[in-house]
Design a protein around this nucleic acid. Structure first.
Lengths: 347, 347
DNA sequence: TTGTAGGCGTTATCAT
DNA sequence: ATGATAACGCCTACAA
């Protein structure tokens, strides 16, 4: 554990007798240097164990080769896939990821955004973060490139990667309708989430088309978490006329609904059908076997990072939006309702 | 989107007419500066929107206020809790986390370690990483402080945070024994994991004490993943005399075992008992309801980070090891075996 | 208490 | 093709 000093480019320079700048050029692979000197430099560099200081380089180049990623909660199985996608291209671009949890809290988000900015990240990927408040906008407009995932404000022309909520949600509701479900409960995600909003709209529109009545009591407002799912499940099951199927705002949320159902002794899908949204690995496990709407999260993360790289290279590019298709994956948590409602006259 | 230039300490200096160093001192909260000038500086700083460059500071102070974290896979629910713990103290210490996935692959790990070193992280937290090979040791000995979590090599006196595998595992096997299980399958984690090794030893020792026979075929070698669990489950269930209970190497692993059981049409815990290890949030959901050994992961992560901070401040401190207790959490995946084995004569 | 100067390790510019 | 020199933005002796 000798406290050896860092080997710098200067050491290499001295060892080879070449000038600082020549060594730098040789190492950077510039073509203005003869093959011979390059070889000398490379040899000396490896021999001395030289490693370029990313910090010094960042200061000089005003580019840190770092991408900041803001996520609500890594511990939630939905997030890591996005992050993995971002990481895929970060590695390709020789960038490193600075990852922070915001817990969906705007203050924490602001804090972390400032930290990222202070560190001069080359860009940021904001996954389901707050995007509209003046405080957030002020930081976003600080001329550091950024890309939004899954949540945006249409008023701002930001680079954005989202999912096509129309296809997935309407497939899901049609699936339930085909199974003869006529009362369907819907859990809405965070009120300031554009994605959650789009899904609800789609749900309502499609329900209308199918002539399903959607009372206010059939829409439960919450977030993407487990607890919301439990609360929603309890709420729905306590209704005088409970729904025979429930669509969660996420898979974890759907698990919460299942939790509530199981605690009431209801069997799934026998007495209640549940649909999730995400298709996390877990959803396909037989013990869960959740019918859900598949999101291409890793691909979305990668696409967002690609967009970010583009914008870093070309700051004045017109903003793009990339919408990824979704699709319903039918598994074992949905089936025909056990007791179809008695036919009623139209109002 | 004006490409405004960065406000530096020099701008604040000029704006206030004070010297560079005075501004720096005032900002850093040094006590060699009058309250009045400090107020002036602070006012000007906020007015101009000054933010210190972490990069420049890192270069100058040779300290990046960054902690590197290596994890096998963020997408595996076991990891994020550790990371959260590390993050808790990182925030307290005004440090940022540089997180990378190594997928349990040593080459990737080496790559990421070099990246972290190049970035001059103040320290590293290695969660279940390779710790013994010469290549890894060479990097570890590069005088950057580090702390190991869940995997170490006793030959090296590193700072280490682990869990007490003895208590948890022996509680589990005794629990199964009390339920009258006599043939118990055991899934062993990665062969180079010290933790996995300790668990197996405990299992074998306790089995011996309880006079349970553990054939070779009752120990399945794999990793902590789902696929290993599935493979282990299939292996065990194909045996001429299959075990009536299986202990997984992790919760995800146990879910894999459940998967294999369910695909064979076996009910849990009716025909097969399963025990996990981790106690991820999921384990407590009714749909899973897994009996498992609880690990205090977030606390362990925080403890590791604390150890790291200590070592950063005091590089010559004697290495410490912190062992966290584990405990069995009995849920619904374990019960008495349906068909107790016919009594047999002792060999 | 405040000001001056040097250097952290690079890369970029400009000369040679 | 190679070399000298000046930044990048900050902290910290040391001098005033």
């Amino acid at each position: 554990m000798t406290e050896r000093k860092r080997v710098t480019i200067l050491d290499v320079s001295r060892a080879t007798g070449l000038a600082l700048s020549t060594v730098s050029n040789a190492l950077a692979g510039k073509n203005h240097v003869s093959e011979e000197t390059r070889a000398t430099v490379l040899e000396a560099a490896t021999r001395l164990g030289y490693r370029a200081s990313t910090v010094a380089r960042a200061l000089r180049m005003q580019r840190s080769f770092t991408i900041g990623v803001l996520v609500a909660d890594v511990a939630n199985p939905s997030s890591p896939d996005f992050v993995r996608g971002v990481e895929d291209v970060a590695i390709r671009e020789k960038c490193t990821l600075l990852l922070s949890n915001t817990d969906g809290d705007e203050e924490r988000q602001l804090l972390h955004m400032r930290t990222l900015l202070d560190r001069q990240v080359d860009g940021m990927v904001l996954i389901s973060q707050h995007v509209s408040s003046p405080a957030v906008r002020a930081l976003l407009d600080a001329s550091t490139p950024f890309v939004l995932i899954q949540r945006r404000n249409p008023l701002f022309p930001d680079d954005y990667v989202g999912s096509d909520n129309v296809i997935g949600v309407s497939e899901a509701i049609n699936h339930l309708h085909a199974l003869k479900h006529r009362r369907i409960g819907f859990v809405r995600g965070p009120s300031d989430s554009s994605t959650a909003g789009e899904r609800l709209e789609t749900f309502l529109a499609e329900a209308k088309r199918l002539r399903l009545k959607v009372d206010d009591e059939l829409v439960f407002k919450g977030d993407y978490g487990f607890e919301t799912g439990v609360a929603a499940g309890r709420h729905f099951l306590r209704l005088r006329r409970p729904p025979t199927a429930i669509m969660g705002s996420s898979d974890i949320n759907a698990l919460g609904v299942m939790e509530a159902a199981l605690e009431s002794g209801l069997s799934i899908p026998g007495q209640l059908s549940v649909v999730g949204l995400d298709d996390i690995a877990l959803a396909s496990f037989r013990a869960i076997n959740l019918t859900t709407i598949h999101l291409q999260k890793r691909a979305m993360g990668a696409a967002a990072a690609d967009l970010l790289i583009e914008r870093i290279r070309q700051p004045d590019r017109t903003p793009q939006e990339l919408i990824f298709p979704t699709r319903l994956v039918v598994r074992g948590s949905t089936a025909a309702p056990a007791l179809p409602e008695a036919p009623r006259l139209r109002a």
